Amino acid sequence: MKTRDELSPDTSAELLEVFKALANPVRLQLLQWLRNPEEHFPVEEAIADPHEVGVCVSHIQAKTGLAQSTVSAYMASLERAGLVRSTRVGKWTHYRRDEERIAQVVGVLSHSL
């Protein structure tokens, strides 16, 4: 029998996706950097507001020193988990944290673990 605090199968699957995304230390670091993008990325070189639109993948790539394809794969993983959102500005993709979704995940964890 399911108790009030048990997770539904859908919620469990969503949490597993979040845990998989955060299990990689670089992806975890990227999410931390995106919390305060102006402290970690060159705002003066940005073509859009890093809080409103996000940080350009080329700036993320420059900071990490990783290949563009690797950065894109890492950001796609974070996006599948619902932790970031992407926005296209011209030919560039920008990423920002989804604070509402992150708060939901934290809330589910605080009530179920």
Rank of each mutant, 00 (worst) to 15 (best):
H59T: 03
E39C: 09
G90W: 09
R80Y: 04
R88S: 08
A62H: 03
R97V: 09
P50I: 04
V55T: 07
S58Q: 09
Q68Y: 12
E44F: 12
E45G: 04
I60T: 07
A46H: 13
E38S: 11
I60A: 08
F41V: 04
I47Q: 13
E38Y: 08
Y74Q: 11
A76G: 14
S58R: 11
V55R: 00
Y74K: 07
A76T: 15
A46R: 00
P37L: 09
T64K: 04
Q61K: 10
S69C: 04
I60G: 00
V43N: 06
L66N: 08
V55N: 00
P37A: 01
E52L: 14
R35Y: 11
M75L: 15
H51A: 04
K91H: 14
E39T: 08
Q68K: 13
R85G: 10
I47K: 12
E79F: 07
V55L: 01
V84I: 14
V43A: 15
A48E: 02
Q61L: 00
R85W: 10
S77K: 15
E38T: 12
M75A: 03
Y74A: 12
R35Q: 13
V89E: 15
E99I: 05
D98W: 04
G65M: 06
L78E: 06
S69K: 11
S69M: 09
E45T: 01
S58V: 12
V71I: 10
T93F: 13
Y95I: 04
M75N: 09
H51I: 03
H40R: 11
T87D: 00
G54Y: 01
V71E: 01
G82W: 02
A46P: 05
H40C: 07
P42D: 02
T93R: 14
Q68A: 10
W92C: 09
K63R: 15
A76H: 03
R97C: 01
S77F: 01
R35V: 14
Y74V: 07
L83T: 07
G82C: 13
E99S: 11
R97S: 07
A67W: 07
I47Y: 02
L78G: 05
H59Y: 11
I60S: 06
G65D: 06
R80A: 15
S77Q: 13
C56K: 03
P42T: 04
Y74P: 02
W92L: 10
D49I: 14
V89P: 00
P37V: 04
L78H: 01
S69V: 14
E99P: 03
G90H: 08
D49P: 03
G54I: 00
A81V: 03
H59P: 03
N36P: 07
G65L: 10
V89Q: 14
H59W: 04
H59Q: 15
A81R: 05
G54F: 03
A81M: 01
V43R: 14
P50M: 05
Q61E: 13
S72V: 09
